[in-house]
Simulated scan of single mutants.
Amino acid sequence: MSSLAQPLVDREDLREQVDTRLRAVLAEQRTVLAGISGDADPLADAWSQMLRGGKRLRAAFAYWSWRAHGGAPGGAEAASIVGVGAALELFQAAALFHDDVMDRSDTRRGVPTAHRTFAARHRDAGWSGDADQFGLSAAILLGDLSLVASEDEFLRAVRDVPAAAVAPARSLFTQMRTEVTVGQYLDMHAQMLPWTDDFDADERRAREVVRSKSARYSVESPIAIGAALAGADAEQLATCSAFGLPLGEAFQLRDDLLGAFGDPEATGKPAGDDLREGKRTLLVVRAMRALGPVERAELASRLGAPDLTASDVEKMQRTIRETGAVDEVEQLIETLSGSALATLESSGLSGPAVETLGDLARAAVQRAA
């Protein structure tokens, strides 16, 4: 995240409050796992590693939307929204465990992914069986544990919130998790399809993945959940979506640019990671549309190839830049984020909390990691 966003997430001690709640959840889970078997300790260690990083952006969007819609800092209601923020972070951890398995990623935030860590543990110990399969299975189970914990934490957080506010928030939380799961499938499905000259269909699929896999759960849903818990009405929740969805799309499109061109020191992933994984992002679709048949076939043959060298990645990056696709995506980010901010400005909301929400929106699309 950009340097601008870090102090924004720290305002009203939000990051520390969310982190404190996450540490409490992990301590509880360590006790539960230890009570089942001492052999489960590595699961708690890997879970802690995943939760240790992260921007806390989802928690921040939920909290500052809650504040913008009338929530007051301090007290039991504020503790509830902090708990919901922790639930959102637990859900993100679950999604990342599973995403790393499906993408066969080697690193996450600069350290080995969970499935690679458990595969290495298997090899180092000289255990029988397939080390890689053991690692994949352990990571899937870690994702399941974090998914269950996200539900438990959400229910704990809202137990004293009026039922009229909990009902829409719970519905949004449930829908968000379904959308991400389907979005993961759509992402995987798109990568399996052969390239054709139907770029309109490719672009439609890429935008569907952006919205369902990331835009809604990263931005739109946290904003709407926070507003719902503050007692927002149907019209206000519709405004939250009109603000949050285009902002979430812009957020993910920035992520796509970083996945192709980001600095590994900042992103914690190899250079051109999305190109190595063969992601069918809007960036790649726009590049393929602009290329001639020969260049298109060459780029398609390299996307996701298991033996890509650093030189291959650099050539792909250069090809994509030369098509103008990067500039097109940057322009779309500007258009989407501009639309989102215009909606916020015309929402009728005002005050310092709304200003912080707007600042978070800008930081989300101006980040370098």
Rank of each mutant, 00 (worst) to 15 (best):
Phe154Lys: 01
Arg58Trp: 06
Val101Asn: 13
Val182Ala: 14
Gly126Phe: 10
Lys55Val: 04
Leu147Ser: 09
Ala139Phe: 04
Ser80Lys: 11
Val182His: 14
Leu141Glu: 12
Ser80Gln: 12
Val101Gln: 05
Glu179Leu: 11
Leu88Gly: 01
Trp127Glu: 13
Ala157Phe: 02
Asp160Tyr: 00
Gly54Asp: 04
Ser146His: 01
Val158Gln: 02
Leu145His: 04
Leu136Glu: 02
Gly126Leu: 12
Val84Glu: 05
Phe154Glu: 00
Arg52His: 11
Asp124Pro: 11
Phe61His: 12
Arg56Leu: 08
Asp152Arg: 10
Arg67Trp: 01
Gly110Phe: 12
Gly70His: 02
Asp152Glu: 09
Ser65Gln: 09
Ala120Pro: 13
Thr178Ile: 13
Thr178Phe: 15
Arg56Cys: 00
Phe154His: 01
Leu147Ile: 03
Gly135Glu: 00
Gln133Phe: 08
Ala79Cys: 11
Thr181Leu: 10
Leu96Ile: 10
Ser146Gln: 03
Leu96Val: 06
Ala95Gln: 15
Gly135Asn: 07
Phe91Asp: 15
Ala114Pro: 10
Val82Thr: 10
Ala167Ile: 12
Ala86Phe: 00
Ala114Ile: 10
Phe173Val: 10
Pro73Lys: 04
Ala72Thr: 05
Glu179Val: 07
Ala119Lys: 13
Ala114Thr: 11
Glu89Asn: 15
Leu51Arg: 04
Asp99Ala: 14
Ala131Gln: 11
Met50Asp: 01
His115Leu: 11
Ala59Glu: 03
Ala93Gly: 15
Met176Ile: 03
Leu88Val: 14
Phe97Thr: 04
Gln175Leu: 12
Trp64Tyr: 10
Ile140Arg: 13
Ser65Thr: 01
Ala125Leu: 14
His122Ile: 09
Tyr63Val: 08
Leu57Trp: 08
Ala139Asn: 05
Thr117Met: 13
Leu147His: 08
Glu179Ala: 12
Ala78Met: 04
Asp99Lys: 08
Gly70Lys: 02
Gly75Lys: 11
His98Glu: 15
Glu153Gln: 05
Arg52Cys: 10
Leu51Asn: 08
Arg56Ala: 03
Val182Gln: 15
Pro112Gln: 07
Gln92Val: 00
Gln92His: 15
Leu142Cys: 11
Asp100Arg: 00
